[in-house]
Amino acid sequence: MKKIMVLVAAVFTLMACNKETAEKGNDSKSAEQTGALKTAYIDTEVLMKDYQEFKDFEAKFKTMSDKMKNELESDARRFQNDVLDLQKSAQTKGMEWAQKRQAELERRQQTLADKEQNYMKKFQDESAVERDSMVSRMKKFIKNYGKEKGYDYIYGTGDAASVLYAKEQYDLTQEVLDLLHKQYEEKTGRKVETEKDEPAKTEKKETKK
């Protein structure tokens, strides 16, 4: 009987030890899961300001905007000159001529207003599509970068900041910017000049002197 009791006690002791070991293992796992998160952040304002593709985008649509503006201003000047001509010539050319001319100018005024509206819509639509496409490609790039580097989270700072504080060592902005520029160089076949290149240029100039 004593042997049976000793055996039962030993079984219970073994079960208790196994349970304690399992609980410790689970605690260790949960500690690893909560403590091993790999996070970083990107300053989206810097990314948007310094990324060459965004610079090219802004230059392209500024040129487009300036061209539209110049054309509309030229149309407006011609229209204004014709209005002044109508006012000057109305008495000498008669009422009938003046009324016909006025009707023509009113139709022209409406045409110019429609043209301006169409230009604005075209500019907004094209720039929005191209900008959205760039942002989408950038998000995809960062997503793939995060997966490749094993990050659990990559936060974004900027106007719509989701990070109020982070150590600078977690800032991926420059690294991602350099990789994006490398990708853009391969796409366009031209060298992207960055601020980091400026010191090297200055040193070369000083050496030549």
Rank of each mutant, 00 (worst) to 15 (best):
86 L>A: 02
198 E>C: 06
67 K>R: 14
89 S>C: 06
157 T>Q: 00
139 K>R: 13
60 K>S: 02
151 Y>K: 02
125 D>H: 09
8 V>P: 01
120 M>F: 09
148 E>G: 03
66 D>W: 07
160 A>R: 14
70 N>Y: 12
13 T>V: 11
142 I>M: 02
150 G>S: 04
125 D>Q: 10
161 A>K: 13
109 Q>L: 09
118 N>E: 14
72 L>I: 13
41 Y>C: 04
25 G>P: 01
26 N>F: 12
74 S>H: 09
178 D>M: 05
32 E>G: 15
18 N>L: 14
134 M>Y: 03
178 D>I: 03
123 F>E: 03
23 E>F: 05
94 G>D: 02
103 A>Q: 14
12 F>D: 05
163 V>N: 03
190 R>T: 13
117 Q>Y: 12
69 K>N: 11
189 G>S: 08
76 A>M: 11
63 T>M: 07
15 M>T: 10
105 L>H: 02
194 T>K: 09
184 Y>I: 00
181 H>K: 06
74 S>V: 07
176 V>S: 01
60 K>Y: 08
32 E>Q: 15
134 M>D: 02
47 L>N: 00
49 K>D: 14
171 D>I: 02
35 G>A: 08
181 H>D: 10
153 Y>K: 01
181 H>V: 03
88 K>I: 10
154 I>S: 01
133 S>G: 08
10 A>M: 10
142 I>S: 00
99 Q>K: 15
181 H>I: 02
75 D>C: 05
6 V>W: 11
2 K>F: 06
78 R>E: 14
18 N>V: 08
53 E>I: 04
194 T>S: 09
6 V>C: 05
77 R>E: 15
145 Y>F: 13
114 D>F: 08
83 V>E: 07
195 E>V: 10
